[in-house]
Design a protein around this nucleic acid. Sequence first.
DNA 1: CATGGGACCCAG
DNA 2: CTGGGTCC
Length: 331
Amino acid sequence: MPVARPELSDSRVIAHVDMDCFYVQVLWKTDSSSLKVRSDVRRQVYRFKGMKCNDPILANWSYCESVVEQRKQQSLRGQPTAVVQYNSWQGGGLIAVSYEARKFGVKRSMRGDEAKQVCPEIHLVQVPVARGKADLNTYRNAGSEVVSILSRRGRCERASIDEVYLDLTIAAEAMLADNPPECLETISEDVVQSHVLGLEEVGSDARENVRHWFTRSDASRRDKLLACGAFIVAELRLQVLEETEFTCSAGIAHNKMLAKLASGMNKPAQQTVVPFSSISKLLRTLPIKKMKQLGGKLGTSLQIDLGVNTVGDLLQFSEEKLQEYYGVNTG
DNA sequence: CATGGGACCCAG
DNA sequence: CTGGGTCC
């Protein structure tokens, strides 16, 4: 029988790391492989610009443009920018949008022309093209740099080009045994800036609440493990920033689903912890469509056919009942 | 044609 | 295996 159920009573420490508008960030950076390509081709680009181009590699004008555009990279920091693929039809499709551009209402999956209308000063940069297709290898390689840093502290699972799950259970247990947060004299600002779900965020001093949560000696073992995990993730995110210039956001929780949910709650360049005690409150009212796997037709079917709107509503249905509707695994 | 394409999972 | 769904 297929089983797709997590273990009961789970105290793993799982992080989900999500790069902020990753394709845009990659433009800001100069990595060695793209430099090599650029210096190879730069001379020819200038030679071919405005002419008929017979070289099969350079024949695609989009590629020439993208090579030229990449030279602007450093100056694009802090400016409204989007990465587009295929510029020939209505300016190409946006696949990443900088936070500066988002302020103007520029959205992913707009066309380049559309983005120019709402944000005339936006910089549109094309992804490289190889064999007539968008070539994402530059971004894939940049993602690998991040994975190599994250894997210093735990096992990594690449979830996509710009997302990684990290199992920090072992590292958190070790930290709890050797050097628990409650014994630390000072706690770095990066850690205190974490968001912890379920903490009363009264206007007075959220910082002090977080600091207290991290250092309380009477916390449950689960909470202490998550606190250690959040420490480690804060360190890792700093190392990623120092070594790659990339910022990312992260969620820290007891399983992948919750870590993924949390990483998207505070962006960019922030991290969010989901303590065990906050889970039921969080899920009871969470719209089902926000959960991974339920954003499409399955989620719609849950709403329309079963009247399930929140994760809490789902509890009224037995596993067997759901399997009747959707099959053994999906159910 | 007009969000594009690839990776992965599942049901039948 | 194919065809459909989902994600980025």
